[in-house]
Amino acid sequence: MSEKQRKRSIFDVMNEYMEEFETLTDELMESSFPEGPSWNTETCCLHALSNVSITPRQVIITADLPNIEPETVKVEAVDKNFIDITAKMKKKVRFTDLGIYHRQGEFSSLRCQDRIHVAFDAEKMKISCKGGILEVRFPRKKK
């Protein structure tokens, strides 16, 4: 192999780093959005879309909960990093109601589980639900 072939330019090295970085970013993104069905036939739950935002003072979780009875919403801090939200639907939804005939199962609630990477005070949560959009606010714990 000639000297010219062996020697890599700074741009090649940078390109390699960039490619590695992109692969890592993609892997991280995939882990944030794990593959799998958006339902669980054993627990009769449909997975709800949710979003977590962290401000300097608060942790704000929102969830899209269509077709639910607002008074059945349960927000539970499973441990110091994990929030479990469930709500009963107004009426059970079967796969056939969604136009799907090759699967079987019916769902009576919506559920989402979110991991929170900062300390928060679960005792002081504030919940509001409007038009099927749930908003839960927790104050962050001071270090």
């Binding site: 993104m29 959005f33 958006s38 449909l46 997975h47 879309l49 269509p66 969604l98 136009g99 099927g132």
Partner: peptide, 22 residues
Amino acid sequence: KGEEIRLKARDIMKRTQQEMKR
């Protein structure tokens, strides 16, 4: 049909969210 659409659209919304981030 709003609520029904919101239930049915969860999967494509999730995948669209990934592309919007990208």
